[in-house]
Structure formats: structure tokens, C-alpha cells
Computed example of a mutant assay.
Amino acid sequence: MCGIGHQYSDLRYTVTIPKKWLGNLPRFVAKEINPDSAQVEIASLTALALSSPSATPDHGILKMRYYPTRRTSRSLRSTRTVRFPNDVLFLDHIRQGDLEQVGRFIRARKVTLDTIYLTGMGALHEAVLSGNLECVKLLIKYGADIEQRDENGWTPLHMACSDAYPHIARYLLSLGAEKEVVNSDGEKPCELIDSDCEELVQLFSTKEGD
């Protein structure tokens, strides 16, 4: 996609780009800051620079100067900072399986484990949906309720059955999770099991036979 050359003596880089991108480039003019903390000045933009051997009817030539950036304290102060609520960060750590951060948030009391978040679920529900058994164990260790219901009356066991996580379902059952509990639609966890998930089917068949 990109071809770097030095055929223009007054320019540091020449980059070949798809012609369809040309309309999106003017907003980057005038030394915009790149993520790598460098500045790029678009010196000129030619839709079809046919004098270049790399130009084609479908490509244009973007000629740029590159300047290393010296960050000053003033520029650092002017940098905008985006802060996310603790709840958002906490749920993201759960979904990413970052057990260290999950534990830190709980120990620092930045979150409470009985909260029903904007997703309509609690932290333990989110951990079950991620399929991360170790995260489930960690939350329960810190006091998460294995019978907590989400906004639709689903328990973590409902989630484990519906999303086919037999290893999590087995663990929740070993802790005494109620298998006869129904959600807001009157469904038991076992009624949400996909018949193709033989391990879950067998797990609940065994439990029913006990």
C-alpha cells in the first residue's frame, strides 16, 4: 500500500496511498500530533502525480515532512485526560481476565460485588460470560453471591448453562448453587442448555439422578 521514496529533494517522505483515501486527508494538515508523539506536515497532496513511477490511476501521492516532537511541560499540561468510572474499569478487567486488577479494585473498595451494572448484570455474571473460571473463583472468594440475580432474574448458573460453560456450571453446583431456581421467564438453568453440549446435559442428568 505504501511506497517510500526520496525523489523530491524538498520532502522527507513520499507515500503512495489509495486514491479513495485522498478526500479524508485534509483534516490532518498543519502538523497534527501522531500517536507516536511525532509531527507530520502534509506539504502537498496530488491526486494523480503521474510523474512518479509508483503512481497509478487508482493511487495518489502524499508528500510529507516528518519532525521529531519535543514535548514540553506546557504541551503535557494541555493534553486532555479521559477518566472512566471505576465500575467501567472494573468490568473491563473482568472481561479481560486481569485477575490482579480485579483483586485490587475489590480490596481498595472501589466497587461493590452486589451492584447490578448498566449492563443489567452483576460482576459475577460478567465473569461467567467471559468463561474465565479463575475470575469466577476470585469474585466468589471476595464474597460474590452465587445466587445473585440480574435484571432478568438470571443467576450465574443460568448464564453458565445458556452460554455452554460446563466447567463453571460444575464449580457453581459444587458450591451449592440452586439448580431449580427460575428466571423472570420461569426457566430453570437446565432448560437453557443446548442439547449439543453433552457435558452440561450429562452434568444435570447426573444431578437429577442423585
Rank of each mutant, 00 (worst) to 15 (best):
D98P: 01
C197K: 09
S75P: 01
S51P: 00
L129T: 05
R109H: 14
G209Y: 00
K31H: 01
R27E: 12
L50P: 00
N34R: 02
I193F: 06
E41K: 12
V88D: 00
P57N: 03
G23N: 06
S130R: 04
C190E: 15
Y117F: 15
G23R: 05
G153S: 08
I61Q: 10
Q96L: 15
K141F: 14
V201R: 13
D87Q: 12
M64C: 14
A108D: 15
T119Y: 07
T119V: 04
E151I: 11
Y117A: 10
G3R: 07
T79A: 11
A164V: 05
R83S: 08
D114L: 00
T14Y: 00
I168E: 08
E100S: 11
I146W: 10
L62K: 02
L91S: 03
D87N: 10
T112L: 00
R83I: 13
M1A: 09
T69W: 15
L113D: 01
K141W: 07
L45T: 01
R109V: 06
T14R: 10
G97C: 10
K63E: 11
A144S: 15
T72P: 02
R83W: 02
R74I: 07
S52K: 07
P189E: 12
L89F: 04
T206K: 07
I106K: 12
V136K: 03
W21E: 08
S37M: 04
F90H: 04
E147I: 04
A160R: 11
L157D: 07
H93D: 13
N86I: 09
G122T: 13
E187R: 07
E187P: 00
D185E: 13
D10V: 04
V136R: 03
A30R: 11
L157G: 05
L62G: 02
I42V: 14
T112V: 04
K19Q: 01
L138A: 04
L175R: 15
K31P: 00
L175G: 10
L50D: 09
L118C: 01
D194A: 11
E41V: 09
H59M: 08
G120P: 03
